[in-house]
Design a protein around this nucleic acid. Structure first.
Lengths: 152, 152
DNA sequence: CCGCAATGGTTTCAAGTTGAAACCGATATG
DNA sequence: CATATCGGTTTCAACTTGAAACCATTGCGG
């Protein structure tokens, strides 16, 4: 064996992101960061993950520019972790994953939960994929693989 | 140690889906499936993954109802793998991941690639999150964590 | 100043996972 | 009949994961 294969240098722009977040914990850390968590202990308590694993994941997320460390506001020795712009870009991935979970992984008899607009408390709409001209596109009507061609 | 921790029974509807697809290969297999691949050898050649790993991943995807096996049309001994409805639901996750990759993982000097509407060959629009009333929501204006409340 | 708890990690080590390569059985194919 | 191809499984060493122990810094009560 060598190391676990990395997609970092893959041509595919679906593969490369997976190098940053394609493990069992990273997206959950990012989700918690969206929910306002910033500190090591908060993540650890929320996720129940071993501290060494959390430490490695946070380091990896920082290395990939998804989180950044900022000095703790209360002048503590240790810093806090906050989302970068790149990290905030993961919002749509989380929404898509969440809606997929709602649609297909919601157990029967389970309290129905959903994402809400924080301003109104009302559920949000489902994601849609639209063509340039506004047409609604169904799964399969879009080519996911790279397609090299100048727009215009 | 025990086994790698599973999110299968997590309450969180972001965590549970990660149990099915939260590893380094599964989403790439699904992407290839969207691109029309059906056979073991096709996936293996496309991904360059070891055969035992591919075998395990396909089994896992079938077990989670994302792929299903169908008899090979040319009457071969072995079957093919096709997306189920649940699997096709991953379309939005792939689009979100792809657009994130386009926005933040595209190297400078790299040929610009993008997803296209297969009907017109034109790029698709970026995903947007909308409130129930149609308002465009920015990252952070939606609560990702579970929110239990009856709609209506 | 001293002791003790909390926070934020790192180290250690056994068990589990991954990947390359070898192997195998069931068709095709020449 | 010999060989090739497809679709895997087996084997085994290296790597990763996770639980627990350990450690350094800061905060606080006395």
């Amino acid at each position: 064996m060598v190391k676990r294969t990395s997609h970092q240098n893959a041509d595919c722009l679906i593969a490369r992101p997976l190098d940053a977040i394609g493990d069992w914990w990273s997206l959950l850390i990012v989700r918690d960061a969206f929910d306002g968590m910033r500190r090591f202990g908060e993540f650890q308590k929320s996720l129940g993950v071993a501290k060494n694993i959390l430490s490695a994941r946070l380091r990896n997320l920082v290395a990939h520019g998804i989180l950044e460390t900022v000095p703790a506001p209360d002048g503590r020795a240790h810093h806090e972790y906050v989302l970068t712009e790149r990290g905030r870009g993961l919002f749509y991935v989380l929404v898509a994953l969440r809606q997929w979970g709602e649609a297909y992984f919601s157990g029967p008899g389970e309290p129905y939960t959903f994402m809400v607009d924080t301003r109104t408390g009302r559920p949000i709409r489902r994601l849609e994929v639209h063509a340039e001209d506004g047409r609604l596109l169904a799964p399969g009507e879009t080519r996911l693989a790279d397609f090299r061609q100048q727009p215009q």
